[in-house]
C-alpha cells in the first residue's frame, strides 16, 4: 500500500474511533440509567429532551462548568495526571480491535482496524492493563483515607484478575495457534465458535472482564457503602468525567474481545456478519448493565477467595485438560 494513503487512512480511522467512542461512552451512561430504571420499574431520565435523550448533553455541560477543586493536601502533579491515563490507555488499546469487517470498494480494501498486530490479544490486554495506574495514582495522590483504600483495592483487584484473564485466554490460544485477532476470527469460520469448545474459558474471561473494567459485582474500587467513592472521592468536574469515559470505553473493548475470541467475531465478513457482530457486542454491553441491576456487591475477601482459590485453579486445570485433548 502507498505510504501516503496508509497514513491518511490511519489518521481518519483514529479520528473516527476517538470521536465515535467518546460519544458512545457518554451515550452508554444514558442507556445504563434507562436500563437500570426499567429493571427497577422507574422511568429514568425523562425531563431533558424527548425521553431524556439530551440528559447526556446536560451532564456534559454540568461537568464542564464545575469549579475545578484540588484539595489542599493532594500531591498536585500526580493528582492532575492520574485521570488522563485511563482514557488514554483505553483508546490506545482500541487501536488493536477490529471494529467492523473489511469493506471492499473497487480495488481498495478499507480495513476497520488500526493496528493489525501479530500479538493482537497481548497488545490489547497489555495496553488496557496500563489503565490500572489511573485509579492507583489517583488514590495515592488524593491523600485521603477513602481514596487510599480505593487505590489499594485497585492494586489487588486488577492485579489478581490480570492473572485470571491471562490464564483463561491461554486455552483458546492453544487451539488457534495465533495471537492475532483476525486469525482467531478466521479459525472460527472452519471450526465453529470457540465457546462450544471452551465454555469454562469463556465464563472465566467474562468474569475477569467485569473485574478489570471495575463493574458491579466487582466495583470495589468505588463502592459507596464501604469507601465513599474510592479513588474518585476527591475528583469533580471533567477530571472525574475522564475516569468514566475510560471505564466505558474499556467495557466496549472487553465486549469486542469476548465476541471476537469466543463468539465467532464477524465470520466471513459480509454485511450481515458485520451487523451480527455489532449486535453481539451490544448484547454484551447490555449484559454489563443487566448484571449491575441484578447482582449484589462482593466483599474484598470474597473477591480474593473467588480469584485465587476458585477461578485461578479452574483456569489452570482447563489449560491442562485442553492440552490433553488437543494432542
Amino acid at each position: 500500500m502507498d505510504l501516503g494513503i496508509f497514513i491518511f487512512q490511519t489518521l481518519i480511522k483514529i479520528l473516527l474511533v476517538l470521536l465515535i467512542f467518546s460519544a458512545l461512552a457518554g451515550f452508554t451512561t444514558y442507556i445504563e440509567r434507562k436500563v437500570l430504571a426499567f429493571m427497577q420499574r422507574r422511568l429514568g431520565p425523562m425531563y431533558v429532551g424527548p425521553f431524556g435523550l439530551l440528559q447526556i448533553l446536560a451532564d456534559g455541560i454540568k461537568l464542564f462548568t464545575k469549579e475545578d477543586i484540588i484539595p489542599t493536601n493532594a500531591i498536585k502533579p500526580i493528582f492532575k495526571v492520574a485521570p488522563v491515563i485511563l482514557p488514554v490507555s483505553a483508546f490506545v488499546a482500541f487501536t488493536g480491535v477490529p471494529i467492523l469487517p473489511d469493506i471492499q470498494i473497487g480495488d481498495t480494501t478499507f480495513q476497520f482496524l488500526i493496528v493489525d498486530s501479530d500479538v493482537g490479544v497481548l497488545f490489547v490486554l497489555g495496553v488496557m492493563a496500563v489503565g490500572m495506574f489511573s485509579p492507583l495514582l489517583a488514590g495515592i495522590a488524593s491523600s485521603n483515607k477513602w481514596s487510599l483504600l480505593g487505590g489499594a483495592r485497585t492494586a489487588i483487584q486488577l492485579l489478581s484478575f490480570e492473572v485470571v484473564t491471562g490464564l483463561s485466554i491461554l486455552a483458546p490460544l492453544m487451539l488457534v495457534g495465533s495471537l492475532n485477532l483476525i486469525d482467531i476470527n478466521n479459525y472460527q469460520i472452519e471450526h465453529g465458535w470457540l465457546i462450544w469448545q471452551q465454555p469454562i474459558a469463556f465464563v472465566l474471561f467474562l468474569i475477569a472482564g467485569y473485574a478489570e473494567t471495575n463493574r458491579t459485582p466487582f466495583d470495589l474500587l468505588e463502592h459507596e457503602a464501604e469507601v465513599v467513592s474510592g479513588y474518585a472521592t476527591e475528583y469533580s468536574g471533567m477530571r472525574w468525567g475522564l475516569f468514566f469515559i475510560g471505564e466505558y470505553v474499556n467495557m466496549y473493548i472487553v465486549s469486542f474481545l469476548v465476541v471476537l475470541i469466543f463468539l465467532g467475531g464477524f465470520g466471513e465478513g459480509t454485511l450481515l456478519d458485520g451487523l451480527c457482530y455489532l449486535a453481539k457486542v451490544l448484547f454484551f454491553i447490555f449484559l454489563f448493565l443487566w448484571t449491575r441491576a441484578a447482582w449484589p456487591h462482593v466483599r474484598p475477601d470474597q473477591l480474593m477467595w473467588l480469584t485465587w482459590k476458585v477461578l485461578m485453579p479452574l483456569a489452570v486445570i482447563n489449560i491442562v485438560v485442553t492440552g490433553l485433548l488437543v494432542i
Binding site: 496508509f6 497514513i7 490511519t10 489518521l11 480511522k13 483514529i14 474511533v17 476517538l18 482514557p87 488514554v88 483508546f91 490506545v92 482500541f94 487501536t95 488493536g96 488500526i114 493496528v115 497488545f123 495496553v127
Partner: peptide
C-alpha cells in the same frame, strides 16, 4: 504507527 498517533492524540 496508528497506536503511536492515537497515544499522542489522546
Amino acid at each position: 504507527f496508528g497506536a503511536f498517533v492515537m497515544l499522542a492524540l489522546t
